[in-house]
Amino acid sequence: MSNQPEIQSTSRVGDVLFGGAAKIASGGIVLIVLIIGIFLLSNAWQPLLDNSANFFTSTEFRASTKPPRFGVAALLWTTLLTSAVALAIAVPVAIGLALLLTQYVTGRVASAIAFVIDLLAAVPSVIFGLWGIKIFGPAIQPSAHLIENLLGWIPLFGDGQVASPGTVFTASLVLAIMILPIITALTRDVFAQTPRETIEGALALGATRWEVTRLAVLPYGRSGAIAAAMLGLGRALGETIAVMLILSKVARFDVSVFSGGETFASIIARNAPEFDTPYKAGVYISAGLVLFVLTFAVNALARVVAERGKAKS
């Protein structure tokens, strides 16, 4: 034995420490998410049992009646509608900007434009909310009326009985501006990584700039762009203060984008003064629970899409 070299593994202190720290950190994150989920569920449990309206189909939301009557249908609709409209506007603009910044302009001009877009991300959302309801909303009122007159026969664009600019329409546009920076930045990074060989392959076939974009850049970056849009959606779904400042309360739920309403996040924030008893707070926590699951699902979906795209190329 003594003449054989030692091949038994010896534990190295650095590896052990680092490995342990990494395990604790990653385990901790999972634990925190679980604890939040359990907290939400346990607080919402009793009000959910007592609820005299259907939680999934009712458009009412009353925490103070006995028993409480609340459902998430209207909240879910308004939340999804504002986010979907915001996404529909932000994604094409973001992709256009990302293409501009990676394919058409370079150097100082590109970094200047990128800087301005990044600045947008630094504006606090409360400022967006104030600006949205006081300046931007009134400014777009004429176009809103135009759309309402032209397409009012479709319920989605019907008269929402809201005189102020505090509509889903205004909120969606402000949200679009708010999620634009993150989507632009992420798509830009993906497009910038298009392999040079692929771009040159398209150029060598006699492709114009747009054709290079279509043949090489967009197919390569598609999954990344989808993932970026999903992350933007996640932010839009959870945006609170700007949406709360913009959206007007309405007496009766309406599907129109020219109506007001509440999203999950805005109803919780607006009614924070009512959290005087754990029971009433629990009613709002049930709405928070749905939002939690919704954003979780959206982010998970973004991951899956991004991973699938990676595996293919």
Partner: peptide
């Protein structure tokens, strides 16, 4: 130059088929 490249084709060092096509 776009028209030139349509009559003078090129093959590169590393194979570069278009992704997802």
């Amino acid at each position: 130059p776009v028209a030139v490249r349509r009559i003078v084709g090129m093959v590169f060092q590393r194979p570069n088929p278009f992704p997802s096509m």
